[in-house]
Simulated scan of single mutants.
Amino acid sequence: MVGFVNRPHPKHFPSMQTVFWAKPPSGWVKVNVDGSACENPGLSGGGGIYRRDDGRFVLAFSSAYGVGSNNQAEIRAIYDGIILCLDRGFSKIIVETDLKVAARLLSGTLATSWNWKPWVARIKSLVHAAELVFSVIPREGNGPADGMAREASGTQASIVISHYRDLPPHIRGLLFLDKVGLGVVRDTRVKM
């Protein structure tokens, strides 16, 4: 007996895209940042992961922000990420976030809401202190920074980690996958 499998028409397959973390150019450091809130609004925090042009881990941070939204936490994490870079002597910095609205806020193409205005102004004031480039990555490609932000919002503890071995194991795993060039699959029908 011959059987047939009913397969869905190709138009029913989700659109998939593989997201890869890209290394920064030679001489640059990239800080991926993210914000998290346990509820929105709720206890919030931000986090970031710094990597060199060869993909090596440099530094990570988690910052507790108290009650706020995930977007507020992301804007604050961008600021904290830049400040830590400057404190460590980095002058060529790529700040990568999964919050598309952040790029519009920082470029001036979107009006700043009153509760973000002070942080956006602080970020813009740092543009003269270093070469700053802002980029956006889909949320699936920002897993290590998301992990650090969730740590901060969940524990309300602020930490800086300078040794790879001190990172939580799941974040070390995500960094390894990024470094060897394995991407994360995302459904492009999902709106961010």
Rank of each mutant, 00 (worst) to 15 (best):
G35T: 04
S125H: 02
N71Y: 07
P168A: 15
N142K: 03
E151W: 15
R7Y: 11
A145F: 01
G27D: 09
H9C: 09
D146F: 03
K124T: 02
L177T: 07
F61M: 02
Y65R: 10
S113E: 11
S162M: 13
G48D: 03
I159P: 06
P118R: 06
S125C: 08
G89F: 14
G89M: 15
N40G: 03
E140S: 09
F4R: 12
P144M: 03
Q156S: 15
A111F: 09
L59M: 15
A111W: 04
A60R: 01
R172L: 06
A37I: 03
V127L: 07
H12D: 14
G66D: 14
D54S: 12
V101L: 14
K117S: 15
L167W: 00
G27T: 08
V67L: 13
F13S: 14
A157L: 15
P25M: 07
L105M: 05
A103Y: 07
L110K: 12
Y50D: 02
S107I: 00
P118G: 03
R52E: 03
P138Q: 06
G45Q: 12
F176H: 08
V180N: 12
R52H: 04
G68C: 03
I93R: 01
V5Y: 11
N115E: 11
I75Q: 05
A157E: 15
D146P: 00
R51D: 08
T188Y: 00
A37P: 01
D34N: 09
S158H: 13
P144H: 06
P169W: 05
I161N: 05
T188K: 00
S26E: 14
R189K: 11
W21I: 12
S15E: 13
F20Q: 07
W21L: 04
V120F: 05
V58P: 00
S125I: 01
I75W: 07
A145S: 05
S135P: 04
